[in-house]
Design a protein around this nucleic acid. Structure first.
Lengths: 185, 185
DNA sequence: CTTGTCTATGCAACGAGTTGCATACCAGGA
DNA sequence: TCCTGGTATGCAACTCGTTGCATAGACAAG
């Protein structure tokens, strides 16, 4: 149930409403933990009931009012406790790998177009990551100018970049294999 | 709901019982789509009810009897239909990335031991992948000896190997960053 | 002859995630 | 004035995944 903790981290980085959190989960933190606004609103309600977070009604002139959440002491304690628990191995759900194996019972070449589309999506994501890195983590500053939070966000982003690069290389391998199997010898 | 399809692929590769499928999901196909025996038995029951798979009671002398499942025509049709659907972008759930960002609000160095343990788990997995590759995909055969199914299994496995290598490199980066932030300047 | 381990299947309860829908405020353009 | 689109919150129903437990046959070790 790490959605709780992902939300707590996001709120510690910056308090905000459910709507704002949902948008952060569409970029930034959501690159590593996906969530919809439905999940977020539900968890916020529960954590508020448990006293993990505080609410503040914020009236806005130019748009609907919102509820701004921030982390309370019990929430912060829960996050610290979770941080000291063992790291669970990720449960993998890689649909494409299943489809590739399924292609053995169909026409491998038929997958090519979908894989190409999928590859473009990953290329786009890499572009976004690199743009984010340029924006947030390079500049005129000397090394050591970033605080711990920024350093840690950067190392996570570097992981995302490495993942996308590795994925693009692998997808080229996949495409070559599919084309080879699809064409007659 | 790709568990259905992962099971169908596994049964097409080789018919088997729920128990045998559960063991396959602990290695091989389960490296890319995790599932417990509970999920598997439930889905098998549903797919049998829908006529996607056939059952055959197999009496065994030296152990309890089992039910061997194999894919029926409607199941195969469902798999083909699924294969031609668009590939969904994976939904990422990367607990470690969340923990790293959470570490900004705690002691970054406290994560080091857990990350080291996590790194060892990935190193072990890479070792298993490489052993599997040596066992199944290298040998005296000339290129072109493998059938399409084996080629496709191999390219999926190469993806797993690339993922683990990338992850190990990234974890070294993570460890260096955590140590740097934990030690006084 | 009991205990443990592996094979083999399954139920029940709960928790997490998905999908579709509903409401409402506010601004700007047709 | 109505319609669209962005902001903002939420319910209900459903499916999927997790956890804990239960049963039972076969065999090997103590």
């Amino acid at each position: 149930m790490a959605l709780d903790h992902a939300i707590l981290v996001s709120l510690l980085e910056k308090p905000g409403s459910g709507y704002e959190l949902a948008r952060r989960f569409d970029r930034s933190i959501g690159y590593f933990w996906a969530a919809t606004h439905q999940q977020i609103y539900r968890v916020l309600k529960r954590m508020e009931g448990d006293g993990w977070i505080d609410v503040r009604e914020v009236a806005q002139d130019d748009r609907p009012d919102k509820k701004e959440y921030s982390v309370a002491a019990p929430g912060r304690a829960a996050l610290t406790a979770w941080l000291h628990e063992p790291i669970e191995p990720e449960t993998v759900r890689h649909e494409l790998a299943v489809k590739i194996r399924a292609a053995a019972f169909d026409d491998p070449a038929a997958l090519v177009h979908e894989v190409e589309r999928y590859r473009r999506a990953h290329a786009d994501r890499l572009t976004r990551y690199l743009a984010g890195e340029r924006r947030d983590f390079t500049g005129p500053e000397a090394p050591g100018t970033l605080d711990a939070g920024q350093e840690l966000q950067h190392v996570v982003l570097r992981g995302g970049i490495a993942y996308e690069r590795m994925t693009l290389d692998w997808l080229d391998d996949v495409l070559a294999t599919l084309r080879r199997l699809g064409s007659p010898r």
